[in-house]
Design a protein around this nucleic acid. Sequence first.
DNA 1: GTTTTCATGTAACCCGTTACATGATTCA
DNA 2: TGAATCATGTAACGGGTTACATGAAAAC
Lengths: 218, 218
Amino acid sequence: MRGRADVLEPAILGLLHETPMHGYELRKRLNLLLGSFRALSYGSLYPCLKRLVSRGWIIGIDSPSAPPQHALSGKRARIVYQLTAEGKEEFLQVLSSSGPAAWEDDNFGVRFAFFGQTDADTRLRILEGRRSRLTERLETIRLSFNRTRERMDEYTLELQRHGLEQVEREVRWLDGLIDNERGQRRARPLGAGHQADAHPAVDGATGTPAQTTEKERG
Amino acid sequence: MRGRADVLEPAILGLLHETPMHGYELRKRLNLLLGSFRALSYGSLYPCLKRLVSRGWIIGIDSPSAPPQHALSGKRARIVYQLTAEGKEEFLQVLSSSGPAAWEDDNFGVRFAFFGQTDADTRLRILEGRRSRLTERLETIRLSFNRTRERMDEYTLELQRHGLEQVEREVRWLDGLIDNERGQRRARPLGAGHQADAHPAVDGATGTPAQTTEKERG
DNA sequence: GTTTTCATGTAACCCGTTACATGATTCA
DNA sequence: TGAATCATGTAACGGGTTACATGAAAAC
């Protein structure tokens, strides 16, 4: 898997910055946040938490936690983790950084997920960095495409074409976001743009009253 | 990165099935094929080649190879790899397999890249498997989306929305491909469909006469 | 003549998954 | 009562990247 780049640690810090949590729940949140479609393994999560504890960025407090219903006693003792002062400082520092690392494939997602806590300047710088990173990639792909198109069979060609389209789409998405960031005061409320694109996006299962049993990655 | 699932080995087998190559060139082809945007490292490639050799699937022949131009002598001795009979057999077996493994995220790309050498039945089964895999994922995302939308800030929401749209787009892409596979005899020539989507796709740098210096991933 | 590209490798490290181990609680 | 979910971990393994090492040929 994508080694390097420490996407897990900042993600954990970020989630714990919002609210303290125990490992099990953290994992669920992380699965959503990271969007990696194979669930994060415990063999990865718990050692990481340990690491963060040993670095003094978080502490784990053993709490039996009274269950909302049933009123009776506590369920199994769970370890609720929360940020320390140092951890908070560390996270804020991560948030304010806007170097190339922030817009590489691995990190961009996490950084974006915490844009709500990132200041506007940094946000814009990251979005623009990401954009130029992608257009640069676009150039490379187009070049290779034009250089090798006659040697390729239709499927390879189609795969290439589709990949190209994906990146183009992503650039346009970024354009929308950047526009939105620039037209700061009372612009359209994010996720409205992309005119004439008729994105049906989220709608299925519209009526569900949010009471489904909490399931893996759901 | 994405550990497991052996995407490298089949890819190498497949490329060598088309034509013998030395490691350095193989890497370039692999970078295109795999579409992973960080170039494959030699520290990964050469050991893998070694593994394949030890398994008897490929052999490396030391050849000085006379350069096309200059007519004079051979450049540095390079090791040209080619499939053995066993390697060919192995690859063909991989090609004919159409289990769930074939349509998981990691493998689908490679499998698709070799569709030109895959029989129509297998192709269709893989495409359909992939499709149902994605729609299944779509359901999961939509559920979680509807369950957590009010608790999320606009950026997290937008990220989620964008992810959802990406998958939806991919499903539609698959629909086109499946249609195409089904309407076998003389259908539209792949990559034409997606009506009213006006995809500008490949065009930039149209005139380049394919003589640019071979560059990394290009 | 120097830089870039070609060309092949090795060893250490990182980080993630798999598989294993354990046990409480809740739901059918 | 038995299955599923909650909850926390450990150890082995795997495979990829980084960094290192080396050198020839081509391009500038």
